[in-house]
Design a protein around this nucleic acid. Structure first.
Lengths: 217, 217
DNA sequence: GAGAAAAAATTTACAGTGGAAATATGGAGC
DNA sequence: GCTCCATATTTCCACTGTAAATTTTTTCTC
């Protein structure tokens, strides 16, 4: 007996349907309240049907997180293409990072939860790296007080990443006061300290969509 | 029938016993796996006994988080007392912030989860403010590129807090590579950018244990 | 086309979970 | 002795994720 107005016994594309339903359930009910059963019910399928496509709830959440990282990357790079390399591009990308988190708080929390997601999943890994690559790309050549010690190419990246990520997290969790309309007192670019680029490196800055990560952190 | 080798029907101090048991369960089983029932069982009482002392699981977790913030504050201020005001004191406190997160990852995540905790709880609020007050105290007078715009006394604080918190979070969630022994590549003080203090403000820096927060963010 | 094999979905069962309600226990005060 | 009340227990319910056996449909092979 078919629960939905589904014509066929086989759904056809249950995998993506479940991910879509999961994305909706996530923001509606919150990360702690999503359940495999409710997601399955939303699609109109039995609660054990997902087993054929995902490795349990964790597997489904992992797939959802992967989509999250794709959208995250998109939000960071949207409107960045036509900005000149350097400060402006960096600030725009950082704003995108935080904007995404504020628009999709539950998804954002899921994406960075190593207990709810399987961080070793290839698709998630790829999507996460893609996303981080955007940040890494716009920060290329960043000269934050002559930061990088020899052999430590990540210091500046991590410094920037930590700040953006921490700000997003603290905002989401209600730790930092916001305006009455819910917008943050500062956009991310208003929080960033003064910095400069090494001019020599600047022209080597990759275009925003090619800064994809391929190196292990 | 008494489950434990408890003498009395009435436990005596079940409230603190539950919090203690919860703290243990938390790091042993992980944040997503702690249950009211397992905590109660650990103490040797029925799973509904906590109801008399806490408002459900959420209430118990809130109380646990409050203890977490107390320890967090302690970790930040330990060894800070005898350092001169300024850079050294700030760096030591920041190291403590991250050190605590790495030593108590599950507790740390709980403390900053607005869904798992009741952020409006007075005791949690107080403990969280105490903790933030430490950071705020050692950062008093911090001059990060003449940061604070008029009317925005929090900008520098938030910048610093975001970075420290983000770094802790990213480390905990396994997003940032660590050394083989699990220690981070950089301690927090090694990640901080160069900064200075406004000398005039420096002498007004409160001692580390008095920088308690009393202002609403 | 027929029949076997594989894939996808179902039903059923089970051990957990948190919470609500009714009940039992024991200590404090009189 | 007694009652009152805080505390803890038992019982029950709705819900969760997972596993196993089963049914249904598609696909592949002949």
């Amino acid at each position: 007996m078919l629960k939905n107005n589904r014509k066929n016994y086989h759904h056809g594309d249950l995998k993506t349907a479940l991910v879509d339903a999961g994305l909706s359930e996530l923001e509606e009910k919150g990360l702690e309240s999503v359940s495999l059963r409710s997601i399955a019910a939303r699609v109109g399928v039995s609660h054990t049907a997902p087993k054929n496509h995902f490795d349990g709830l964790r597997g489904l959440l992992t797939a959802i997180a992967a989509v999250g990282f794709e959208r995250h990357a998109q939000e960071m790079s949207s409107g960045v293409e036509h900005l000149p390399p350097g400060k402006e591009r960096l600030k725009a990308a950082c704003n995108g990072y935080v904007r995404f988190a504020l628009s999709n708080p539950e998804l954002f929390k899921l994406m960075f939860s190593s207990t709810l997601c399987d961080a070793s999943d290839p698709e998630l890994k790829k999507a996460a790296w893609n996303s981080y690559g955007i940040l890494r790309g716009v920060a290329h050549g960043l000269d934050w007080d002559k930061a990088d010690a020899p052999g430590s190419p990540w210091r500046t990246e991590w410094m920037l990443w930590s700040m953006v990520h921490g700000y997003a997290m603290l905002l989401i969790e209600g730790q930092i006061r916001r305006n009455d309309d819910g917008t943050p007192l500062f956009e991310m670019d208003g929080l960033l300290p003064d910095f400069a680029y090494r001019e020599a490196e600047l022209e080597k800055m990759p275009p925003p969509f090619e800064g994809r990560g391929s190196v292990e952190i």
